[in-house]
Simulated assay, not measured.
Amino acid sequence: MELKSALLVVPVLTLPDYSIPFVIETDAIGNGIGAFLMQKDHPISFISKGLSACHATLSGYKKELLALYKNGKENLVADALSRIQGAELMSMLICLVQADLWDEIKANWTTDPLLQVLIESLQVQPRKHFTWLNPQLRRTGKLVVGDDTSLRTKILSLWNFTHVGGHSGIDATTRKVMAYFYWNGIRSDIANFVYKCVVCKRNKYDTSAYPGLLQPLPIFAFPWMDICMDFIEELL
């Protein structure tokens, strides 16, 4: 009931108004932590993550210390996030930003020939890493995306161009996308996509270490101070 109530109250995210104070609502329960950045009782941004095996064994009181705690009935929004599974949260995120993306991913499983063969084989014999349940095609818990360039581009655009991605760079975008999706060559596709992003090229500064000043060769004080030799053979 709490999850349904929370989703009915806050169906979509909104843009922030920096002239109004922000409120953070958080909760930790079970094996997850959820937090909402609120403004005028409306969500601006959110985060939800699972607890590590070490933290999952902590008592309820200690788990609450991993997040700012707001009491019971006043904390419906964050309670919903802390109780929701990662895949369901990803579905919420996709629906909030682009409603038809989830449908395209599901349709891709029925149109890609290789994925059709994989799904049929999974229904007969389970395979390592891959599962077909609910019905969703996953590899180690991540949604499998077939050989569809437009769909892959749409996914990468969502996690790079929009406020969800925020042009975070190759490493951060790779972590975000690979937390939910899998396809062959996903790392190289993400790197090439972000590398070609015009906004990133214009606004991202070079984070490599400064090489320092050039060190020219010393000026010799007199002839034959430094002698070098090389052997060259088979000249025509």
Rank of each mutant, 00 (worst) to 15 (best):
V9K: 02
P11N: 04
F22A: 01
F22W: 03
I29H: 08
I33K: 06
A35G: 14
M38W: 10
P43T: 05
P43V: 03
S45L: 04
G50H: 02
L51Y: 09
A53R: 14
A53L: 09
S59G: 15
K70W: 10
E74P: 06
L76P: 05
D79S: 04
R83N: 00
Q85D: 15
A87D: 13
M92G: 07
V97W: 05
L101A: 04
A107E: 04
W109V: 07
T111C: 09
L115M: 13
L122G: 04
Q125R: 13
P126K: 00
R127W: 01
R127H: 06
F130W: 04
W132G: 01
Q136E: 15
R138S: 00
T140N: 14
G141L: 03
G141V: 03
V145C: 05
V145F: 02
K154N: 15
S157K: 00
W159R: 01
N160W: 13
V164K: 10
V164M: 13
H167R: 11
D171Q: 13
R175Y: 08
V177R: 00
A179N: 11
W183R: 12
N184W: 10
G185V: 05
S188K: 01
V198R: 09
A209P: 04
P211R: 04
G212H: 07
L213P: 10
P223A: 12
F231H: 15
E233W: 11
L236A: 15
